[in-house]
Amino acid sequence: MSMEFDVDYEYQDRCMYMAESHPSDEMLRDDRIPHIWCTGCGCGEIISTYIEAVKELDINPDKVAIVSGIGCIGRAAGYLKFDSFHTTHGRAIPFATGLKVARPELDVSVISGDGDLFAIGGNHIIHAARRNMDILVICSNNYTYGMTGGQFSPATPIDSFTTTTPYGNCERPFNLCDLLASAGAAYVARWTSIHVRRLQKSIKEALTKKGFRFIEVLTPCPTGFGRRNKMGTAIDTSKFYQDHGKIDHGADTRDVRLEDPLSDFSIGTFVDLDKETYLEAKERIFSREVKK
């Protein structure tokens, strides 16, 4: 950053070393940092773990493409210094599908939120999973529409309070992992924003796989959701995730429903399959000899 600032120099000496840039800045549009996300928002962890995973795998950054929809985490496309596209509301998956079909050599990742992917784009995501389209989808699930002011989303748990459900939500939420596992995804995992090491490992694993890969990341939303549901600050929510997230690899996705935001929940890699992807099937069928 080139900003001039006045710092207490006594503090500087006493503290650790002051830096001007971060090692992640090579993959960040650092002129846009600091970002707009609230204090303690989990979106930043998704970006930093994604960058670390790309760095560790040593992928050429020119071959990585990020597509995101609308929402808080939709800003990810603007902050990551890859080929990125900020699409219209709910249409991140169709753009990513088209991009992957046209340029199969790219690693296409969709980073978007629960409202964008499952409400407005709900039909697109189940059909992308059905086709086993070769894209990685990272869904930041904060149980609400954060950017527009905390309305309820298809992932909001029953009984919880939002701006549009002031007496409590009467609708049952989607079980996102089960929805996509039954639609035919090749890799389904759930982590939280506090399990950053495991999340980084999971993104690394998913980037090396083929097929439709889905990672749900539970993120604290202290401003939009946590404030109305007595979940406290981002630290309280993160501590809750650390204590109540039970790692259960290979669990049946029907049992991992997030019913109550204040009870134990399962995290881990639930589905890890090797299936024929859409592009492989297309290759196989188009290369068949046609009988005349």
């Binding site: 950053m1 600032f5 650790m16 070393y17 002051m18 830096a19 600091p34 630290i235």
Partner: peptide, 14 residues
């Protein structure tokens, strides 16, 4: 060694 970019901090205390 800990390096800090002081102007980016938003005080979330994580």
């Amino acid at each position: 060694k800990i390096y800090l970019i002081i102007e980016r901090c938003k005080g979330c205390n994580l």
